Amino acid sequence: MKYTKENFIFLLCGIIIYIVDIGVDFWVASKYFYKGQYTWAILIISFRCLSSLITQIFSYQWFKNDCEGTDPEKLKWIFLVHFFHCGIFIRYWFALKYGCQAAFKQNSNGDVSETDHPNFIQKQAIDVLTDINMLRIFKTFLETTPQLFVQIYVLMEHRNHNFYQYAAIIMSFCGISFSTVDYQISLRKSLPDKDRFRVLSKLVYLFYKLLTITSWILSISLVTLLSARSSVILLILLWSCGFAWTLKQHTTFCKSKKMEFLYRTIIGIVLLFTFFNIKGRKTKVPVSIYYVTHTLVTVGILLVYWFWKPLVVKEIHFTIVGILTILCLVLGIVFLVVYYRLFHPTCYCKQRTCFDEVDRGAGDNVEIGRFQNFIMQ
């Protein structure tokens, strides 16, 4: 798979959304503070700080692994930048640099040195972009998705709706959209002998993720309206199941045991909201179990509301919310089935043993990237 101009455009869009998302978060938090709704403001800022801290830790650790044996002063400078929570911008700078070379400049110059071989530049661009997409997955499910849950919960609980709440929800959906699709693109590029991730397959995958996540967030919001304690217990129980599954998979994403434990903890949180392919392997059985479980829990929540009929049912227009929850779930499962039947790659974890003559060259003898090495374990 090549780094294309389309990938570069998606990168630019991702940078813009990332910067705008920061501004929207602080804008929404300031509005909540101004109205005296301190709980929601603190939650919005807390999710932002938590996701930033986690992404800085992983980003710095990856820089440290990649810079082994280099100048210690360089690592000190990198640590300082990450300490001030700006590490992601260094990665975006490298992504723009290598991405521009891979997508635009290589086609116009046929004479290159061995160090600037097209295959090497392509690999550099893809590896840097893959690291960013992995960090954005962490950010999405540590910050964006919980914030979306908070905003939807506030809208369901209170009748007064404001523009900044809708702006936050729109930005959350945009963040989820780009991060999930970009991660799948990175997974496809890291799996050899895979099909190309075309526009139609991206759209199907996008709708599958957005619809299932929306249905699940609405369901959890309903539980929270009934009882915040029950919601916390349910989320902890589901997180424990996801964490146990990552332990069973024997993931090897990080070099140190502490970082690997943190990684598995984060993946458990990701699995609260959506299925996550952590090893690049066949997932027919796990994904089936995952969404059957989510469907049963969602139906159970709606039945509790239907038979219990608390006063909150009338206040939140339960019929509309219930229909929307079921509709999103059903359509999401439909898009899931279509994606896995028609667009999901059928060849996993097979090392490429031969190359086309035009691709063979000095740049082929490069080290396997962090993400590819992880999924090939």
Rank of each mutant, 00 (worst) to 15 (best):
G280S: 11
F276C: 05
S256N: 04
K284H: 08
F273C: 07
L303F: 12
S288E: 10
L272K: 07
L296F: 15
V304G: 04
T293W: 13
T252S: 05
L302K: 14
N277K: 09
V297A: 15
F273K: 03
F261Y: 05
I289P: 01
F276I: 09
K258G: 00
I267R: 06
V304Y: 15
F275C: 00
F275R: 03
G268C: 10
S288D: 07
K282P: 00
V270M: 11
K255M: 00
G268V: 07
L272A: 01
T274Q: 13
T283G: 03
S288R: 15
F261H: 05
T251E: 08
L272T: 06
L302V: 10
F273L: 04
M259D: 08
V287H: 06
S256T: 12
C254L: 01
V287P: 01
I301K: 12
P286E: 02
Y290N: 12
K282D: 06
C254K: 10
V297G: 11
S256P: 03
T274S: 13
Y263Q: 00
R264N: 14
T283F: 00
V304M: 11
V287M: 02
I289M: 09
C254H: 09
Q249K: 03
L262Q: 01
F273D: 04
I266K: 08
L271N: 11
M259W: 04
H250C: 01
V270A: 07
N277A: 11
Q249Y: 05
K257M: 02
Q249G: 00
K279V: 12
T293D: 07
T283Q: 02
I267W: 13
V287G: 07
L271Y: 15
C254G: 00
I269D: 06
T298Y: 08
L271F: 15
F253W: 06
C254T: 00
E260N: 13
S256C: 07
C254V: 05
T252C: 04
V285P: 01
L262N: 00
